[in-house]
């Protein structure tokens, strides 16, 4: 969170209770064991992804056809795929790409979603109506199906997968932002700011949005999980990331045809990687929500 601007009397006045709020939040979060487990899992995944270039034992695309489809061994900790590529290295690099897809698509979606939702919620009236009707139109499509449709137009690539997931996630963020803004708008400090005549955009961003960060963060965390799963689904349908770029989706996609031959490692390990990361993100999201919700917290 941004450091409160002490020169701003309204925020300064507000900063004391917020700090204790923050402590309450941390305490509640730590008390939730699942949430902590979630955080640890996510941190492990992020670490693996960020350091993939250094910790991966081999080049993820280096083929060695004489040693293909080998089960896990000392040489290849997680075995090899049909081109004799090291599965561990591919999964580590896949973590990088899959997390990047999940993270960047939702960051982009959050940017636009907060903008649209914030404007709609704060200004209200006809603008609110127009923006939210447009969002309603996009929300009227099952997300994966809309994503498939858009991806068919754009063609498969990492960038396009990010774009598509971002586009279909914008309305979700916008909706959460709007309702959070609507709630905050009625709060005393915003009313006070309006009274002393601060310019509209300053009010909007400094006060309202800062206080809406909590619900948006929760939504975004859960959406990152959804985004990663969507990437695997799109790659599985052959619409996602192009070979030979490793992502969890493409590795799983290549592995599925070998399960019947009892070559389980190509499917099991990326499956576990996905599962643990999803669990982590979902626990984290839930934990954040519970810790941020005063109603649950005091329970």
């Amino acid at each position: 969170m941004a450091t409160p601007d002490l020169a701003d009397p309204l925020v300064a006045e507000d900063s004391q209770p917020r700090r204790s709020q923050f402590r309450l939040f941390v305490d509640a979060f730590i008390a939730n064991r699942l949430a902590v487990v979630g955080l640890v899992l996510v941190l492990i995944a992020v670490f693996a992804g960020v350091t993939a270039d250094w910790i991966a034992p081999q080049d993820p695309n280096a083929q060695n056809l004489s040693r293909r489809l080998e089960p896990p061994s000392a040489d290849y900790l997680l075995g090899t795929d049909q081109y004799g590529r090291d599965l561990l290295s591919r999964i580590l690099h896949g973590t990088q790409v899959s997390l990047a897809v999940g993270f960047f698509s939702i960051v982009i979606a959050s940017g636009f979603g907060v903008l649209f939702g914030g404007i709609a919620g704060y200004l209200g009236g006809i603008i609110d109506d127009i923006v939210m009707r447009i969002m309603d139109v996009f929300l009227a499509f099952p997300a994966l199906i809309l994503a498939i449709g858009i991806l068919a137009v754009l063609g498969p690539s990492v960038g396009n997968v990010i774009t598509v997931i971002a586009v279909v996630s914008i309305p979700q963020i916008a909706r959460v932002t709007r309702s959070a803004v609507l709630t905050q708008k009625e709060e005393e400090y915003v009313q006070a700011a309006r009274v002393i005549g601060l310019p509209v955009h300053v009010r909007l961003f400094k006060h309202v949005l800062l206080n809406c960060l909590a619900p948006i963060t929760v939504q975004a965390t859960l959406l990152v999980a959804w985004a990663i799963l969507t990437e695997t689904a799109l790659s599985f349908l052959g619409l996602g990331v192009r070979p030979p770029t490793p992502t969890w989706g493409t590795i799983l996609f290549e592995g599925k045809d070998y399960i019947l031959l009892n070559i389980w490692w190509m499917s099991l390990f990326p499956g576990i990687a996905i599962m643990l990361t999803m669990l982590g993100l979902n626990f984290l999201g839930d934990g954040l929500r519970d810790a941020l919700d005063p109603k649950v917290r005091t329970d």
Binding site: Q63, Y83, G238, P243, P244
Partner: peptide
């Protein structure tokens, strides 16, 4: 679909 991509992946190397 099919084996085209697999062949091309080997050719790529």
């Amino acid at each position: 679909q099919g084996w085209f991509v697999e062949q091309l992946t080997v050719m790529q190397a």
